[in-house]
Structures are given as structure tokens and as C-alpha cells.
Amino acid sequence: MTDTIRLAGVGKTYDGEHGPVRAIRHVSFAVDPGEFVTVVGPSGSGKSTAFRIIAGLETATEGAVEVGDEPVTGPGPDRGMVFQDDALFPWRTVAGNVRYGLEEVGPPPDTTVGGRVDHCLSLVGLADAADQYPRELSGGMRQRAGIARALAVDPPILLMDEPFASVDARTKATLHRELLSIWQETQKTILFVTHDIEEAVYLSDRIVVFSEGPGTVVDVIDGPPDRPRDKTSEAFRETKGAVLSYFEE
């Protein structure tokens, strides 16, 4: 398989106002094809820095980052991105946003642009909102549109940086179920960043736990064995407790 994410000894030091600032150090972990892996950590743990390095938006100052056995040199259509701030193009309709990547790299084999847009919109339940502008949508719908846009060019990997941090709890629960069903249907590799431990335990095959800054991986914990997950089960509570133990003084 060619869509494995691999970080080996990755570090990042910024030039701060008062000398160099180390955001992350010695970060090593890997994500297997088709896996759903979440990076959790307190704010300031550098988990977003790690995300941006994998996305190719920033370069590591130490170590190696590979996606599909190739070193990461910049952002690209092999890694779809979804942000907390949805970052939809406000001048494009929902369908126009989903179409963007298809205009740039063309539709996936055996599909048309129009067919692909329709398919991705119905995948996230936005078929009826195709002609609306982002400002007309609720927070949850905007995140769905962002996911559809990222999926349109059929990237093997989906990178998601706190995508549900600013939606309400009920919408969040719905989006979790939808994301899992999209993941199962499309077989994507998902790397998800969050500070919400319950979210991480609910979604992930494996949870990469970051320490406080300069962030590094303190543990990698397997998610509960069952799917769909029962938040009241013993396994769920145990996994949650294991992750939580790293954040208690």
C-alpha cells in the first residue's frame, strides 16, 4: 500500500521573538492504510504543528515525514484536509466548493465532475444544499461541505484538524456517526487531531497521546474493540481513563 503516514524523530523549532521556540520534539508514529488514528493532546502540545507538517503546510526542522514512502514536500491532493474553521470558499456554492478540486486535478477515473460532486454531496447528506452559499449554512453543514470537498478528489488520506470543535454536542454526535460511516464506505486512512478525549476514543482505531509542549508522543493506545462503540461500555471507560491519566496532575 502506498498511503501510509510515517513520522520518524520529527521536531519543529520556530524562531520566536525571544529566541527559538520548540513546538514538538522526537515525534514518531505511523498510520496504516485504512486506519483511523487520532492525535490527542492539550492545547499547546504541538498536535496542530504535527498536523501541519504532515499536511505539508510547514516543514519539520528535524526528522523525516513520509506519506506513501515519499518525503512530504508540500500540500497535495493525496491528502484531503478538513479544518476547524471550515475554510470553505465563501464565493462558491456548496457544489462549487466540492467541484474545486475536480477543476484542478480532474475527476477520479470512471467518474464525471458532475457525477462526482453529486456523489460526494449525498455522501455527507448535503444534496439539497448544493446551491447554497457557505454563509447560509449552519456550522454542522459547513463541516459536512468541507468533508465533501476534501473527498471529491478521492484522496487516500483524510487529515482533519479539530473539525468538530465548534459545533454543538448534538450535531457533533451526528457528525461522528456520519464520519465513521463515510470512513467505512470509502476505506480512507484518517488522521484526526482533537483535544476532546471522548471524541478520540469514540472514533479511533488507535489514539496517539501528545504531552504538553514541546509536544511528543507519550503513548499510543488502542481504541475499544467494538464498533459501533458504546460510550457506556466498560472498555470505552477504560480506554478513556487510560488516555485521561496522561492529562491529570
Partner: peptide, 25 residues
Amino acid sequence: ALLEVAQSLGTTTDRRLVRKVVLPS
């Protein structure tokens, strides 16, 4: 963030970034 998204969706050249993202916004 819009420029970053565009790059992740395959917009590579400066000219195209200007045409597809900078000018409309």
C-alpha cells in the same frame, strides 16, 4: 487557510492561486 486548502486540492502554480482564490476573495 483558503490558500492552504486550494493547495491541498491541487492548485500548484502562483498564477492559478491568484486566479482561483486571491482574485475572487
